[in-house]
Design a protein around this nucleic acid. Sequence first.
DNA 1: GTCTATAGAAAGATAGAC
DNA 2: GTCTATCTTTCTATAGAC
Lengths: 211, 211
Amino acid sequence: MRRVRTSRRPRETGRRIRAAALRLFARHGYAAVSMRRIAREVGVQVGALYAHVPDKQGLLFELMRDHLEEVLAAWEATPKGDGPLERLEAFTRFHIDFHLARPEAVFIAYMELRNLTPENFAAIEKLRRRYEDALQAILAEGVQAGLFDVPDLKLATLAIIAMLTGVNTWYREGGRLPRSRIGDIYWDMVRKAVARGDGPPAPSALRGYRG
Amino acid sequence: MRRVRTSRRPRETGRRIRAAALRLFARHGYAAVSMRRIAREVGVQVGALYAHVPDKQGLLFELMRDHLEEVLAAWEATPKGDGPLERLEAFTRFHIDFHLARPEAVFIAYMELRNLTPENFAAIEKLRRRYEDALQAILAEGVQAGLFDVPDLKLATLAIIAMLTGVNTWYREGGRLPRSRIGDIYWDMVRKAVARGDGPPAPSALRGYRG
DNA sequence: GTCTATAGAAAGATAGAC
DNA sequence: GTCTATCTTTCTATAGAC
């Protein structure tokens, strides 16, 4: 293959470096992926990488930061409906859809936190916290309105996010469930998990079992 | 290959090596921790490690396998009560307690799967699957008895485990919540998430809000 | 069982040519 | 911007002394 000429779009290589790093970091882990391997994936020599990224740590940070900023922007652009219940459903479906569309970025953002420098870690945590706060605000409104009953606002927030993010650990393209069904299934569980209701597991079920 | 043990407590060093590896792998990640660093933590030279563990990969595998076998043994030894509801509560509290007592092993078992060789990965997944099946069986019984209503058995299993395991991402010793409260809080959410009940968020709450 | 020493490979990052 | 070449460090794992 003959090398044609210098690219007209100087950002294209940088973009491909990030794409390769995203895929490799997600698959093998940040610490297990060398700059040489990223370079090979892109089709350049290792030295060329440093014309596009500051260093390996900076590359990881940029991937995580860009991802989290995309999450926040996408959520803010999502139609959310009127009440807390509608907004909670919107959040549930948004979170699942967004995560399933970007499994690699999601995986890195959750798994590689410990490989960030303290400064980078603080910046990433700030972004993540903003996202968690969006859900927590919905739950708070719902509780205030008497619609929801959660034992602890912060824990309910983290529990729901953990549950929803867990989709990425098992979902495979072309699996048993069509993607459109997954939002329905999880929304059913989220909806009930924050529902008001005092009897275990629910008044009607308890009567049916013991009465 | 032969190991001649002359020490009075020949297994003590091996035990300390595993303990150090557990702590370091959990904190920095398998790929980021060198055998030299483990040795330094234990207080020996790096060559001495290989009298106790086969190699780095084998060390990781042993840590994960021992942990998962402990989980299974501990769950089987746990009193579970009579009905599905009681067993689900037992599972919920057991999972949280066990995870909070072994944060490092739990973290490794969930985060380092991709650093296992294919054979080791298969063995670990088999153990994890056995644990998931224990919960799924409880949910299946509850559905059969008309006590629970889950949209999908497998997904409910994974959703609950993801939610419960998420505790380890935020729990800190001496934090806002006493450890005894956490089981209560999550049990409330799990209980409701699998509860029968068709109205969003729950019939009683819906009436209270709109009626 | 632990030590010292080292083999042999690979890592992150940079310099200078073009 | 990308190349080749290299500096410097670090890695896993093993050998042989004691």
